[in-house]
Design a binder for these strands. Structure first.
Lengths: 240, 240
DNA sequence: CAGGATCATTGACCTGAGTCAAAGACGCTG
DNA sequence: CAGCGTCTTTGACTCAGGTCAATGATCCTG
């Protein structure tokens, strides 16, 4: 379980956070300064889109807040490809079969880097390059898990899997139970799990009636029986 | 369009191929030798699984042949997470919510590395580390495209997308048309696209009747109207 | 090159999730 | 703290794709 993130508004704090996460203090002063001058600091309000700048690939470091990466298919269909929280590094391709946009779920502090230049500097700093590789592989792992979910799981298994995975990222312990404060709407969850808001809602209701979860308000979910959720998540092996 | 791959059986040729792809000649002799002693060469016959060795994360370099990375969910459901062809580097996590296995579609020559040690050596060679990062980001990009496909596309759009994407990887030009020699069965395609063999078959039939493709035997597909396929692929922007 | 096993195709029917529509809850603003 | 817009929930019905079952095409082996 990760701890919830505090606010961190401000360019200096944001870059400091980036340094701690990606440069881990072992980077040369010159590289440090080059990263600093390359970084474009932005504050993004909830609901806003991270502007596309030019048409190049970008890395976005999320210093605070939460975002979703949305891919658009034809016919206005949207798929949420990933959610991100503080300290995450997001890779956004400029173009492809689908258009990608990064949208803020809450107010965010971010640093935007052009990928090409970022990688050029990183090539002189093994620590940072290794961190990019490590994070990319981790994101790939998560994306594969999502592919299994989207390709082969029922609506209920998708919701159970989502709750377990999200709890591991932003859940907190409160009076023995795991509590989630979801920054995303039912629509975001639906677009992430390949469902509709109606189906998401129905599955929440079912899990509530089974006594596996309790909800209060629009965003708070309390996981009452994690073992029961795992059993219903469609996972092959028991998650570690 | 990539060119089809020739056979390359043999440990020496396989490692040479690895060197050309991942070390690009600029690597120190000591790192070269360390990679060489870390690599476990294997020949895998079509249909066989790459043995799990110990329980650690692995990188597999595919020197020749084609493989599928399969994730297993509960109830024996299988999801093909990715296909791989010659010169691809596959990252296989040891454990997670779903068990992963790498299976050969054709006879293969592979090099297996334990991830941890591989990354340790790579940290001394920016070229290789950068290549790992580049490939991981590329695999992530592909996996995201797959998530859009699995989350939001119809059966027909999935098949069209699959044919276009596969043509780009292993298609060859023959008398003006793009020809695919698919190394995977209908079941593999179905497990990759989140469908059943029956649905895959029906969609092939439909595309054939629309005059977009022609098939001969079990594995050969001729793309007669690529623009038509793209139009039916559900892609948002026209693919480059 | 005949026999047989596997793989692919086709057809009939069924179901889980989508769609459409309406009512209810939340939470924001004045 | 009342009013209103948005988000969520619930219900009735539809349909794309799954399931079950049978037939037909490949291709491999002896």
């Amino acid at each position: 379980m990760a701890t919830q993130t505090e606010k961190c508004a401000g360019e200096a704090q944001s870059f400091e956070r980036f340094g701690a996460a990606m440069l881990s203090g072992k980077v040369s002063d010159s590289a440090y300064l080059r990263f600093q001058s390359l970084a474009a600091y932005r504050q993004i309000n909830a609901g806003e889109t991270v502007p596309n700048m030019d048409l190049a690939d970008r890395f976005v470091f999320l210093a605070s807040g939460a975002t979703k990466l949305v891919a658009e298919a034809s016919g206005g269909r949207e798929q949420v490809v990933a959610f991100h929280f503080a300290d995450d590094l997001v890779s956004i391709p400029a173009r492809g079969p689908h258009g990608y946009t990064l949208r803020a779920l809450t107010d965010c502090d971010i640093l935007v880097f052009p990928s090409l230049e970022f990688m050029q500097i990183a090539h002189t700093e093994p620590v940072t390059l290794g961190e990019v590789a490590r994070r990319a592989l981790h994101a790939l792992w998560r994306c594969r898990e999502k592919a299994v979910l989207l390709g082969r799981k029922t609506a209920q298994e998708r919701i159970a899997s989502f709750l377990i995975a999200t709890a591991r990222r932003i859940g907190s312990i409160e009076r023995g139970a795991c509590v989630l404060s979801l920054p995303m709407s039912r629509r975001d969850i639906a677009d992430s799990l390949g469902l509709t808001t109606e189906t998401v809602s129905r599955q929440f209701t079912d899990l509530r009636q089974m006594g596996l979860i309790a909800t209060s308000g629009r965003s708070e979910v309390r996981l009452l029986d994690i073992a029961g959720l795992v059993a219903r998540s469609g996972n092959f092996s028991i998650a570690a």
